[in-house]
Simulated scan of single mutants.
Amino acid sequence: MIAERGIPLIAAPMAGGISTPELAAAVSAAGGLGFLASGNLSADALAAEIAACRALTSEPFGVNLFVPSARRDLDLADYGARVEAAAARHGAKAGAPNWDDDNYPAKVELVVAERIPVVSFTFGVPDRSIVERLHEVGTEVVITVTTPQEARAAADLAADLLCVQGMDAGGHRAVFHDDAELPGGGPLFGLLTAIRLVQAEVDLPLIAAGGVVHGADVAAVLSAGAVAAQLGTAFLVCDEAGTTSTQRAEIAAGQRETALTRAFSGRPARGLVNRFMADNAAAPAAYPQVNNLTRPMRAAAGKAGDPELLSLWAGQTYAQARPMPAAELVHRLMVEARRALAHATARL
C-alpha cells in the first residue's frame, strides 16, 4: 500500500501520547501516512484512538506494536533505590519494576479485527502466525530493523516492508536483542549506511528513519533507494502532537546535546541529555521493568514542568524541527524534497 500509493512521507509512531489521532489523521489527509503508537496503551485505549482517527479522516493510517521482551526475572533493587531518590524530589515513589507484555496479544487481535491498513512492529519480529493473519485481512506488515541481520530475520517472516532505523533517530532503538555492553544495544549505523547494508541483504521495499527533518533529507533517502521517509522528531512540535509544553520548550531552546540512554526505560533510546540521564549512564538493560520503575517519577516531573527527570526523546536534528500544523509540514517537506531532487538531477 505504501509503495503502490506512492506515499513518500510517514509520521513515525511516538508513544507516550505524542502520536495523537489528530496528528495521524492530519498527516494522512495531507498525503502522507499517519501512525498511532500503541506502546503503553491498553487495548481499549488503542481502540478509542483508532475510532477517533477514523472519525477525523477516511484516509489510511497505521498502528505500531511493541513486540514483548523475554527478559523477566532481573534484580533491580540497586537501580530502584536510585529512582526512588530521584522521584522523591517531587514527592513521588518509584514504581514496581514488573515485567508485562504491553497488552500485546489483545492489541494484535484488535488490529486484525479492525483491518488496519498498515501495522508495524518494533523491538523484534512477530510470530509468523500473526503476520499471516494480518495478510489475510489485507494489512501491510512493516518490521523496524537496525542491522542487516535483523533485516534478514524480518524478510524470512514475509514482511512487506522494512523500516530501517539509523543511529541518529530519536526515541527507542528498535534492536531485537539489547546488548547491555553497547550504548545503542547493538551496532550503530548512520541512516544512509544502514540503507545500503540492508539493501545488500534483502530485496524488500525500505522505509528510512533517523535524522530526517527537512525535505532535502527526504530527497536523500529516496535517492538512496527508500520508498518513503519516516519522520518523528520533525512532527514533535506540530500543533496536533501530544508533546508536553516542557519538551516543546527544550526543543525550541535547542541547547541540549542528545545521547543514547537506558536510564528511563531500560532500553536504549535517544533523547535530550538531562540530569537523570547523566546520573544514570550505567542503567540496566531491563525493558519494560525500568520503564515501569520510572513511570511515577516521570509523571511527577511532568506535572512540575521539570525537564531534568523527563524522558525528552528527540533525534540528533531536533533543533531543526519547525512548529506548525502537521498538514503544512507535510506540504513543505514535499515541496522541499521535489526541489532538492530537481536540483540534484540538474547538476548531473
Rank of each mutant, 00 (worst) to 15 (best):
T139D: 01
E140R: 06
R152T: 05
Q149I: 02
D178S: 05
E136M: 12
V198F: 04
V175G: 02
F123G: 03
C163T: 13
T147D: 07
E181H: 11
G186Q: 02
F121L: 02
I143K: 10
T139H: 12
V145I: 09
V164W: 03
A155F: 06
A158F: 09
E140N: 05
G185N: 09
A153W: 13
V145R: 00
L157P: 00
V141Y: 07
G171W: 04
T122C: 06
H172A: 11
G171L: 05
I195R: 00
L157A: 15
F123R: 01
A154R: 12
G138K: 08
A194S: 09
R152F: 06
M167S: 11
R196M: 05
E150T: 10
T144A: 05
S129L: 12
G138H: 07
I130Q: 14
P205W: 01
P183T: 04
G190F: 06
L197S: 10
D179H: 09
V145K: 00
L192M: 14
E181T: 15
H172F: 08
V141N: 03
G185I: 04
P205T: 01
R133E: 15
G185W: 00
D179P: 00
G184W: 02
V142M: 14
P187S: 01
L192P: 04
V125D: 14
G170M: 04
G186L: 03
V137I: 12
G171S: 05
A151V: 07
Q149D: 15
E136R: 15
D168R: 09
I143G: 12
C163H: 00
A155M: 05
D178V: 13
F121V: 09
T146E: 12
L192G: 05
T122A: 02
G166L: 00
F189N: 06
L161F: 06
V175Y: 00
H172V: 04
L162A: 10
C163Y: 03
E201T: 13
I130W: 07
T139E: 03
